[in-house]
């Protein structure tokens, strides 16, 4: 295997390097192709999910955006997702600041506790929450689903905001104090503007966590709270029809937009960070 492109590699090494490139190339194709391959099928004129396409039509998108069944589910997904985002971002951001400023022993334990929902298999969390919430009548309720999604989303917010705070220069706050800013003013004028992109990125993660969840919804959602993934899971177990593919393409588009948002925020953070360093 040739490393670093040494110019005087032998033929054998060049073959090795080519093999690496080929495997990697196939890997990238493997990552992307299934997502791209379904896009044309969502425009198929007939209800087959195979090539060649027989005519083009928007009918399957029409089915997705028809009054039932997907629109109520989409509305549920969005409202539950937004409620989760607000709750998880508030709680998680506060915790990330707390962890950054905490100086007591056991900080690592607290951090591990806050991250643990990422490690526990989702089915176990869903089952546990289902049994616990049943005692308070929170099963099949909007509040119960939002609460459970918040538990799943908080780790992502803590990690994202924590990473932003980790790179935050503590001297910024000291500088603000030396220039006459009290703690609250320093937070408002310096800490908050500099860490806001990280908080926003955390919020996007929280929304996606809720928006993509199937398993918790499977346990906790009543028919009134059926989200898009919950309905889609049923539909996939039942029979695959092109309107589901149209929905999948639509959801992919949403994902691309969210990814773009997070990348933009990351770029902004980097830019703000680099401004603090030597500009040369």
């Amino acid at each position: 295997m040739a490393v670093g492109g040494t110019p005087y590699s032998s033929a054998g090494h060049r073959c090795g390097a080519a093999a690496i490139r080929i495997i990697a190339g196939l890997g990238f194709v493997f990552m992307l192709v299934p997502i791209l391959a379904i896009v044309p099928l969502s425009f198929n004129g007939v209800s087959y999910l195979s090539y060649p396409l027989r005519g083009l039509s928007w009918q399957w998108y029409g089915a997705v955006f028809a009054p039932t069944p997907w629109m109520p589910a989409l509305w549920n997904s969005i409202t539950i997702g937004l409620a989760t985002t607000v709750l998880a971002t508030a709680v998680g951001t506060s915790a990330a600041y707390g962890l950054a400023y905490a100086a007591f022993p056991g900080t690592r334990l607290v951090a591990a506790l806050l991250i643990s929902p990422m490690v526990v298999p989702i089915v176990i969390t869903a089952l546990a929450v289902y049994l616990a919430f049943a005692q308070f009548g929170l099963v099949q309720s909007f509040a119960g689903l939002v609460l459970a999604h918040t538990v799943l989303a908080v780790p992502f917010v803590v990690i994202t905001v924590g990473a932003t705070l980790h790179g935050f220069d503590r001297n910024m706050v000291r500088a603000a104090a030396s220039l006459g800013a009290g703690p609250l003013t320093a937070f408002r004028t310096v800490t908050l503007p500099l860490t806001a992109p990280g908080v926003l990125a955390g919020a996007v993660f929280a929304f996606v966590t809720s928006f993509d969840d199937v398993v918790v919804a499977l346990f906790l959602a009543g028919p009134q709270q059926f989200t898009v993934p919950r309905r889609m899971f049923n539909a996939l177990r039942d029979k695959l029809d092109p309107s589901i593919i149209a929905l999948a393409v639509f959801l992919t588009l949403v994902s691309v937009l969210l990814l773009g948002t997070v990348e933009l925020l990351r770029w902004r953070t980097d830019r703000l960070r680099n401004r603090g360093q030597n500009g040369t």
Partner: peptide, 8 residues
Amino acid sequence: QNYALFPH
């Protein structure tokens, strides 16, 4: 030491 100029 590293100036701590407010980058924003």
